[in-house]
Design a protein around this nucleic acid. Structure first.
Length: 541
DNA sequence: CGACGGGACGC
DNA sequence: CGACGGGACGC
């Protein structure tokens, strides 16, 4: 169970949505390739002289980058031009540059200066925020613990003039908490940093600091849900009400790439033999057209993706053989539901082609070998994680429930809740049925387990599904990029059952070690009592 | 061998 | 000077 900043449980989807600043109430139906605010601050709101044509806007604005959409507002009844236009760019920096250059300027043949500002999200409507550019100049970043404010400033001065930096520190010890803020003078510079800094900084546009009351208001109406939901069975936890999670996932956040180099340019370097741009796909039965298209649309350049829902066979085409090869390498073997890989191969190859034998099946923690030969500048292991995670998010949204598909057939009808074990597709032995996880409350941690997956990691979904079956699971995770991690239980008995059952078994093809965890390496506590009694019970766990 | 995640600012 | 639509189809 993930815990939000407020100590409430939060689902993976919610967390990712929240981190991406996505609008969970923007009830669009997902046909757009992207949300309106994706990437953030990439859409401009412009006041202009009435009667200006789309072409005139295009001529004036396309030098700043890729325009994804121009929309001139007209009165619904009278069809009268209201002198308002939205222009959506593909990148934040493009929008910032356009804003900087065009605000106040008159278009050729007009005499009215434009007013150009970043558009509010649809939800916020026309409310004018006095802290408007506060949102545009300040980044929240995750930093190594040893980073000083000096180091942080130097690092981010690469992208423009830094006004100030802050590293958050523990109030008592003065140690860095591992994150900070960087404030630029200009929105364009913040955008450059957002797009081009190393992805390990996980940059986000910082929310303006709010008063306590404002924060509480958001807690009550916002993204987090309450502890009661923690009693739900897993997977149900991941199903979202209509409109909740519809913003299309952006596969290639522009920050992964250097300036002036889009995903398509980078993919033009991807190794591909001349086997065409078309893929043939065998998808699990039950997956719908819409979700499969979204899945393959993660990879840039998809032109179409048609599924025969009866047979599960689909064809997809990309704009280049490189894009197609990349899609094949990233998505072939991806398992959904767990244990049901999606098969992807070139549709038109005359010569049989070798496929990577070591397919990185839904393995978010393992940096797959596919990236070893991928020469893209800025390509990082993070991308491998991004793509797999996004794929999992999309397919989880499809609502296919692995238990529905497998438990019935294997465990027999009506055999729920009697303690009998069932076959699960990702594990070599039968396991007890899933049980609810419990929220961590600061006091209920009873036993921690140390987990090693060899030779490489297992997805968090699989881990959770396996470890929740012993009851009273609080959370299980692997350290990012590692093949080891921890499970936290609110009951020692349940934890010991997990060891007994899972130690030495295989999950998603990986051999598992499950041991009682050693006490965590704790930082020296200043000013506390450190007598002979050793750490308290809580510290030992 | 395999040992400690994320992370939101004391307006 | 101030706020939210329409889309389409291919191998």
């Amino acid at each position: 169970m993930l815990i939000s900043a407020t100590g409430r449980p939060i689902s993976v989807g919610q967390l990712l949505n929240k981190m991406a600043g996505r609008d969970n109430r923007d009830g669009r139906d997902g046909r757009d390739s992207r949300g309106l605010d994706d990437p953030p601050n990439s859409r401009l709101f412009i006041l202009c002289q009435k009667g200006t044509t789309e072409q005139e806007f295009r001529d004036a604005f396309d030098k700043f980058g890729t325009i994804e959409d121009i929309w001139i507002i007209k009165d619904k009844r009278t069809n009268e031009d209201r002198g308002i236009v939205y222009i959506k760019f593909s990148k934040t920096s493009e929008a910032m540059q356009a804003m900087e250059e065009m605000n106040g300027r008159a278009l050729p043949g007009t005499n009215k200066g434009l007013k150009v500002v970043v558009a509010n999200s649809k939800r916020d409507g026309s409310t004018r925020d006095p802290r408007e550019d506060e949102r545009l100049v300040r980044l929240f970043v995750i930093i190594p613990k040893h980073f000083s404010e000096q180091t942080l400033r130097e690092e981010f001065s690469k992208y423009g003039d830094v006004e100030s930096v802050t590293v958050l520190k523990d109030r008592n010890t003065g140690e860095s908490k591992g994150f900070g803020y960087v404030r630029y003078f200009k929105p364009l510079h913040a955008a450059m940093a957002y797009e081009n800094c190393d992805s390990s900084f996980r940059p986000k546009f910082a929310e303006p600091q709010r008063s306590r009351d404002e924060r509480d208001e958001i807690e009550n109406h916002g993204f987090t849900h309450h502890s009661g939901a923690g009693q739900k069975r897993m997977y149900e936890d991941e199903l979202h009400p209509p409109g909740f999670f519809n913003t299309e996932v952006q596969a290639f956040p522009s920050r992964n790439f250097h300036l002036g180099t889009g995903p398509m340019e980078i993919l033009s370097e991807y190794p591909a033999t001349n086997t065409g741009s078309r893929l043939i796909i065998q998808a699990p039965i039950g997956l719908t057209q819409g979700y499969l298209s979204k899945l393959f649309n993660i990879i840039p350049g998809m032109e179409y993706c048609d599924l025969n829902e009866t047979t599960g066979v689909a064809y997809a085409r990309y704009s280049s053989p490189q894009c197609a090869a990349y899609a094949r390498d990233k998505l072939n073997g991806f398992e959904y539901p767990l244990g049901s890989p999606i098969h992807v191969q070139m549709a038109d190859e005359n010569v049989r082609q070798e496929f990577p034998m070591n397919v990185d099946n839904n393995n978010f923690s393992h940096f797959g070998n596919q990236f070893g030969s991928f020469p893209a500048p800025g390509a990082s292991p993070m991308e491998a994680i991004d793509i797999r995670q996004k794929a999992a998010m999309i397919l989880e949204k499809a609502g296919i429930n692995p238990h529905n598909l497998f438990s019935f057939a294997a465990a027999g009808v009506g055999s729920v809740g009697d303690g009998r074990k069932e076959r699960v597709p990702y594990c070599n032995i039968p396991l007890p049925p899933p049980q609810p996880t419990v929220a961590e409350d600061g006091k209920n941690l009873a036993q921690r387990l140390f987990i090693v997956c060899q030779p490489s990691g297992v997805s968090e979904r699989v881990l959770k599904d396996a470890f929740c079956r012993f009851g009273n699971l609080i959370d299980v995770y692997l350290l990012s990029g590692r093949n080891y991690g921890y499970a936290k239980f609110a009951s020692k008995d349940c934890a010991m059952k997990a060891i007994e059952t899972l130690h030495g078994q295989t999950l998603a093809g990986q051999k598992l070690k499950v041991l009682e965890a050693e006490p965590p390496k704790t930082h020296p506590v200043h000013g506390g009592m450190q007598g002979d009694e050793g750490p308290s019970k809580k510290q030992r766990l």
